[in-house]
Amino acid sequence: MRWDVVWNNIDYFLWGSLNFDTQNMRVTGELGGLALAVVLAALGIFGAFWLGLAAGLMRLSRRAWVKAIAVIYIELVRGTPLLMLIFWFYFLAPIVLGTAVPEFQSTLIAFIVFTGAYVGEIVRAGVTALPKGQMEAARGTGLTHFQAMRLVILPQALRNMIPSFVNQFVSLTKDTSLASIIGVNELTNTATQVNNRTMNAPFEIFITIAALYFLICWVLTATSRRLEKHLARYQARGR
């Protein structure tokens, strides 16, 4: 067993080549490793939340063309592997835009577009799961449809969706590993780099990487389970 290989590179796995130069008092190197994976996942879920909220509400719209756009987007993305989507944004954006898009940005967009479709389905399920009386009562008090959605339905629905959002966040955290395929220097990429350089400790390296991902995802999953139990108490129920 060659755990020293892992130990010597643990800082690279955790935050990449980022370094604080104490002589010149400045930060050198680039963020990478686990920290970059977390940044990618956090930015991804933030973007996907807004995109998914829009897609989910559009899918519930009564206007056929609005609904059609959402259905096509959601079904198209959910039927495609994420890797395919990453390739679309990475290899084909330069042709469409005329300039190269950096790896980080293009994968981030791919993650947002991909996760947005799944969040859209969560939003739709969350809104339709509320009793119909909520909307009717809100409209009955004189709120417009938009106001009723914003002030009555969504605050309740979004709270019930929190566990599903956390699960989606876990998925996305795992999916950030795919960014390594086009060269974003996140955790999986640092692992393959160190593995290619050392050549003698693949078992130890990949077990360590898996453990790091596991730690984050497992804490999140456990939180989601706790939330699920906690939130069940506040649910408005139909008869």
């Binding site: 950030t176 590993s177 390594s180 393959t192 693949p202 898996a210 999953t221």
Partner: peptide
């Protein structure tokens, strides 16, 4: 709770 890609590499 671990990425498939890491498992494939493993």
């Amino acid at each position: 709770n671990t990425p498939l890609l890491v498992q494939i590499y493993f």
